[in-house]
Design a protein around this nucleic acid. Structure first.
Length: 654
RNA sequence: GGCCCCGUGGCCUAGCCUGGAAGGGCGGCGGCCUUCUAAGCCGCAGGUCCCGGGUUCAAAUCCCGGCGGGGCCGCCA
């Protein structure tokens, strides 16, 4: 007999319910939906209304009669995994047989070990997940943190489920923004990082400074023109914008006055900074050795910083994909542009090649494949600039094709913020237009909302962001203080190790526990709250289990544990909660939702802590003692699996 | 102007896909450390599920129309 404990519970009920309605009402053709019952109403429940409708009878009659039938079957020994059922106000409430499922749970955990909970009938796929992919022009901020944690956790989840997963970081080295930093460094004449600065932070500073200075010059020029033209309203608006950027300049200058002033001077003496920036971009795409050396060194500098930060929160990649290599220098983007240009939907607008997306959608009826409504208008896509350089979406088409071809993957998941929804739609439309409808269909935009700062929105161009480094460092500082209080006897390196792991857990959990579709407003007091529903709380619960197991000579053999006749409610609840794990994994995999894993982890720990406080384990008398030890062991095992999925470290002490 | 996401006790959040008994957490109040880590446990108070219609025996959930917040509609990425 296969299946996880609750699968067996469900199939037992389903079989009897269908058998009953077939003989009593002549039908068994209806869907049966199980839900987790509310507290005190059993373990699982089925709303019987739809069943009653299919049977053409009243819910009350159906419920009453089925309970009778069920109890008859139970008397005949036909029921094993269900303890009892009850009919209340339209619901069939089901109490599982905790002794039977406990035995099964022990056996499965023993046999399956670390793959307990893995879906049993899943078709494994090859999946490529692209995540984080921050532009290599400033340090990772909190928004990237959310992206990275979601992407990495998703990768861990899918890998656990049996899929073959690759994690890729797309290095965006071709855009104009990289040319901005490169311009700055070129003027400065050196890539040397000032004393006390992390490389990516310094790159971010130069990027923001160049942006700011160029913007100021542009606005001043515009103001003059508007003044001469006498356009008062626009003048006032522009003045306000100028004011905003002057504020930014003030903030930036404060950080590194020498560098900022020097850049200001150098940029001012350039008659046309923007043209110089475009020129760098053009040369880089063309593979000009000097431009290549400059841009690449800057990107490498920044990536070095990224890797350091990501390592702190347990994130690694299987591949770092350079946009320039894959899309531009290989000539692939040129070929794609040529192919797109030959389609009847391509037009030249002001010298730039443009793709008429809406018309393509209308003519070919692809909207269904891409899951968008027929009448929706989609803006045109600009494929190339007037100077012939390429644009992001066009290069992304090439990149996506590369992902599918090079690795033969079945599915590509792009973890990208919701503001790029349209770009991702354009990507899919272009793929389809090129004849790759499968690629279009199997490219998933895994969208998530912003992380906001109270009041302002983060802006790389303005140098306004809370970096991931700041948050991680502050978390670690707080954790270390706490560990010093709790575990004064440990060595410094042990304490630091714990603090590092707890800080990581706090951060990862904070990002993973909210659903991606919600905007998150960053709040120190929330991230630093280590009580229930936090990463540290989970680790604390784990350590408590370790504390018990550490004190016994050996872990009991799970298969031979005697399950006692009667249990404390907290033992029963723990068993049921542990048995829910496979359901949770299946749901998370189906809907690509890591937050349900986080939610489960928290709820499992709440249940365990109640058990921990209510019943003694080590002091218990013999039949109970072994049984409870088994429960603690299984809890530790399952929570450990959850930790692997969430990327939290399993600390024996905390 | 068009499109997308969000709106659940003072605050944060699950449930919405697949209609059926509103779950957590923070904060507040009151209890529990001579016994396995109190980052814990137990109890109490607190809710027009943004508003208005509709569908349904049944709506937080589905449909329509509003309101509020965020995002997108670039020869930026």
């Amino acid at each position: 007999m296969g299946g996880y404990p609750l699968d067996l519970v469900r199939s037992e009920v389903v079989d009897l319910l269908r058998e009953f309605t077939r003989s009593r009402f002549g039908t068994s053709d209806y869907p049966i939906v199980f839900k987790i019952a509310p507290p005190g109403m059993g373990d699982l429940c089925i709303p019987l209304h739809p069943v009653a409708r299919a049977c053409n009878c009243s819910v009350d009659d159906l419920g009453r009669e089925f309970v009778e039938f069920f109890e008859e079957c139970a008397k005949k020994g036909r029921v094993r995994f269900v303890r009892s059922v009850e009919f209340v106000r339209g619901f069939l409430n089901i109490w599982v047989n905790e002794r039977e499922i406990a035995r099964l749970l022990f056996k499965l955990v023993r046999d399956l070990g670390d793959s307990f909970g893995k879906p049993l009938d899943l078709k494994p796929m090859k999946i490529l997940i692209e995540h984080t992919s921050a532009n290599p022009i400033h340090p990772l901020h909190l928004g990237h943190g959310r992206n990275a944690v979601l992407g990495d956790t998703l990768a861990r989840l899918l890998k656990f489920c049996g899929h073959e997963v690759r994690r890729h970081f797309y290095v965006n080295d071709c855009g104009l923004q990289v040319a901005y930093v490169a311009y700055g460094f070129k003027l400065l004449g050196s890539l040397e990082v000032p004393e006390g600065w992390k490389p990516d932070h310094y790159v971010g500073f130069v990027y923001a400074a160049v942006n700011c200075i160029v913007e100021l010059l542009k606005l001043k020029k515009k103001l003059e023109e508007l003044k001469n033209l006498g356009k008062e309203d626009e003048y006032r608006l522009t003045l306000k914008e100028l004011d905003d950027w002057l504020g930014v300049a003030g903030e930036l200058r404060e950080k590194l006055p020498h560098v900022f002033d020097r850049l200001t001077e150098l940029i001012k003496s350039d008659p046309n900074p923007e043209a110089s920036i475009m020129e760098i971009n053009r040369r880089y795409e063309a593979g000009d050795p000097e431009a290549v050396k400059l841009v690449r060194s800057i990107c490498e500098l920044c990536l070095r910083g990224f890797k350091e930060t990501l390592a702190e929160i347990g994130i690694e990649f299987d591949s770092w994909d350079w946009e320039s290599d894959i899309a531009v220098w290989s000539g692939a983007v040129r070929d794609v542009v040529k192919k797109l240009a030959s389609l009847p939907f391509a037009v030249v607008k002001n010298g730039a090649l443009t793709f008429r997306a809406s018309e393509y959608l209308k003519c070919s009826g692809v909207s269904k494949v891409l899951g968008i409504s027929d009448e929706s208008e989609v803006p045109d896509v600009t494929l190339t600039r007037r100077d012939g350089t390429t644009l992001y979406v066009t290069r992304d088409v090439v990149y996506t094709m590369w992902k599918f071809r090079k690795f033969g993957v079945d599915k590509v998941i792009n973890v990208i913020s919701s503001e790029q929804r349209l770009a991702q739609l354009h990507l899919k439309i272009l793929l389809h237009a090129l004849g790759y409808s499968d690629y279009a269909k199997n490219t998933i935009h895994y969208s998530y909302e912003f992380v906001q700062l109270p009041g302002i929105r983060m802006s790389g161009r303005r140098g306004r962001y809370v970096t991931l480094d700041e948050v991680v460092n502050e978390l670690r500082r707080r954790c270390l203080a706490e560990v010093n209080k709790r575990q004064p006897h440990l060595s410094n390196s042990e304490k630091e190790n714990i603090a590092r792991a707890v800080a990581k857990a706090a951060l990862r959990y904070a990002f993973v526990c909210v659903s991606p579709s919600k905007v998150v407003t960053f709040d120190w007091s929330k991230v630093l709250d280590f009580s229930r529903n936090s990463g540290p709380f989970l680790q604390y619960s784990y350590a408590r289990a370790c504390g018990i197991l550490r004190r016994v000579e050996s872990i009991p053999d799970l298969e031979s544990i005697q399950v006692p006749e009667s249990m404390d409610p907290s033992e029963r609840e723990l068993i049921v909660k542990l048995c829910q794990f496979p359901d949770v994994v299946a749901e998370a995999e189906r809907s690509l939702r890591v937050d349900v894993i986080a939610d489960y982890a928290n709820s499992l720990c709440l249940t365990f802590n109640t058990f921990y406080e209510r019943v003694p384990v080590l002091q218990a008398s013999e039949p109970q003692r072994i049984f409870r030890l088994g429960l603690v062991y299984v809890f530790k095992k399952v929570l450990g699996i959850v930790f692997d999925i969430l990327g939290l470290e399993k600390l024996e002490r905390i």
